[in-house]
């Protein structure tokens, strides 16, 4: 018996596990943090929340992860291993670049925060390194987004504001999905890199679905209902405000 016909089958099997080598370009996103439309400047001018309480901001950080690109036919293409920590205090962190296969896309989707799998997978590195101060050690899990500041309305010592939003389990999962349709389609080529500006408005954290009054709530540092409520507010904080597609 000479089962030569098995040869092509084996060959197919061998190549089946080979990684696809589609031509890759990339996309650059710059995050611009604002408060009610006014550019955010840390530790300075006071802003006013929807409840009329003034406040300043000392820290503003959030995770952007699980980026997907939506093709013109609405199919979704995942950007593997995409985890970024945007930190207002670090200029370099506010511009992120990720690989994208050559093609045309109509929208960008991502999660605010870190998916549940990475919350339970042990020691991580890069943006997810706990050295970044975005990981709760006593109750394992990532802080998805963090805002700290001060407000005369706060009853906490030093009139501080501490909003550490996290939790990836059950009813109060604070990981939020965002889908942003681009005003023009994004064409990724070998020589062509779309550059997006996404504006994040901190004002949304405390208004929208759930009004947050600093006089009543000035600190969150555990997962739970309050953290989740703020996450349902801030899932609407992003807008694509500029696209350069050259």
């Amino acid at each position: 018996m000479k089962p030569y016909y098995l040869l092509p089958v084996l060959f197919l099997l061998c190549t089946a596990c080979k990684k696809d080598k589609q031509e890759q370009g990339n996309i650059q996103v710059t995050f611009k943090n604002v408060v009610n439309g006014v550019p955010l400047v840390l530790n300075t001018a006071p802003y006013t929340n929807a409840n009329g309480e003034t406040f300043t901001v000392t820290t503003f950080k959030y995770y952007i992860s699980n980026i997907s690109l939506i093709k013109m036919d609405n199919s979704e293409l995942r950007v593997p291993d995409s985890y970024f920590l945007v930190d207002e205090n670090t200029a370099a962190s506010k511009t992120i670049t990720f690989n994208a296969p050559v093609g045309e896309y109509r929208a960008v989707a991502f999660k605010i925060g870190v998916d549940s799998i990475r919350n339970v997978s042990g020691a991580q590195t890069g943006a997810l390194d706990p050295v970044n101060g975005m990981f709760w050690s006593w109750n394992s899990g990532y802080i998805m987004a963090k805002m700290e500041g001060t407000s005369p309305a706060s009853t906490a010592p030093g009139q501080t504001l501490t909003f550490h939003i996290g939790g990836f389990k059950g009813n109060f999962n604070a990981v939020q999905d965002v889908n942003l349709v681009s005003p023009i389609s994004l064409t990724v080529g070998l020589e062509r890199r779309p550059q997006l500006t996404i504006t994040a408005d901190l004002y949304t954290w405390f208004t929208g679905v759930n009004l947050v009054k600093f006089s009543e709530n000035s600190a969150i540092h555990v997962p739970g209902e309050l953290a989740w409520k703020i996450s349902t507010n801030y899932r609407y904080m992003f807008r694509i405000t500029d696209v350069t597609d050259l």
Partner: peptide, 28 residues
């Protein structure tokens, strides 16, 4: 931990290393 707050063997040491009542060190 006694309350099960830590969910993975690898991140377990983070708690005693950084807890001010234990080793009290900053990870960075």
């Amino acid at each position: 931990m006694w309350d099960g707050g830590v969910n993975h063997l690898e991140v377990q040491p983070l708690t005693p290393i950084t807890d001010p009542n234990e080793m009290g060190e900053d990870l960075a």
